[in-house]
Computed example of a mutant assay.
Amino acid sequence: MATQAFEDIVEDFEFIEDWEDRYRYVIEQGKDMPVLEEALRVPATKVDGCASQVWLHPKIEAGVFSFEGASDAMIVSGLIAVLRKLYNGLPVADVLSVDARAEMERLGLNEHLSSQRSNGLRAMIERIRLVASEAV
């Protein structure tokens, strides 16, 4: 189960054959993401397990999940943007039914990320799932 915004990324990836171009596309997604306020870049929102600095600020309003995020690394910012498109706007109860690894595999990201980036992506997904599970 994925949002339409994520399905749009999947469609775009079908037309982008070169992995370097896909990498640039992910980076552009991060550049287009809203800036996370400095006041929200605190230890409570920092994600452990990432090689770079990563902050995720989740929100649940009227039972709908969303989050903002930031990183000091361009590709990680892009991964945050992709995860936002995967999860933002879902009912909080549906967040736990998303198989994020399988969805990211549709983009071919798993085979093109370094082990550190993969670990960081896994840590971000786990944080999102934890927040959702505590809210259900």
Score class of each variant (00 low, 15 high):
51 A>K: 11
122 R>C: 06
50 C>M: 07
72 D>F: 12
54 V>H: 08
73 A>K: 11
118 S>P: 00
29 Q>A: 14
64 V>G: 00
43 P>K: 04
17 E>G: 15
129 R>S: 04
114 S>C: 11
66 S>M: 04
74 M>Q: 15
97 S>Q: 11
71 S>R: 03
129 R>N: 14
32 D>Q: 12
52 S>G: 06
32 D>A: 09
40 L>K: 10
8 D>H: 04
18 D>K: 10
89 G>N: 02
16 I>S: 11
121 L>R: 02
20 E>Y: 06
72 D>R: 08
42 V>N: 09
46 K>R: 14
130 L>R: 15
31 K>A: 14
38 E>Y: 01
32 D>N: 09
17 E>S: 15
74 M>K: 14
23 Y>V: 12
26 V>T: 15
136 V>G: 12
32 D>T: 08
70 A>N: 15
27 I>A: 12
51 A>I: 11
87 Y>I: 01
122 R>M: 04
136 V>T: 08
104 M>R: 02
21 D>T: 09
47 V>E: 11
85 K>Q: 13
20 E>T: 11
66 S>P: 07
85 K>A: 06
1 M>C: 01
62 A>K: 07
48 D>V: 08
86 L>C: 01
102 A>I: 01
83 L>H: 03
19 W>V: 10
25 Y>N: 14
25 Y>P: 04
26 V>G: 08
71 S>Q: 11
111 E>F: 01
88 N>W: 00
22 R>G: 12
54 V>R: 01
118 S>W: 00
16 I>F: 00
83 L>Y: 10
126 E>R: 05
8 D>A: 15
93 A>Y: 08
64 V>C: 01
68 E>I: 07
39 A>D: 15
94 D>N: 13
110 N>T: 07
130 L>A: 09
102 A>K: 08
51 A>P: 02
73 A>C: 05
10 V>I: 04
111 E>L: 02
26 V>H: 12
7 E>H: 00
69 G>H: 05
22 R>F: 06
15 F>C: 15
113 L>Y: 09
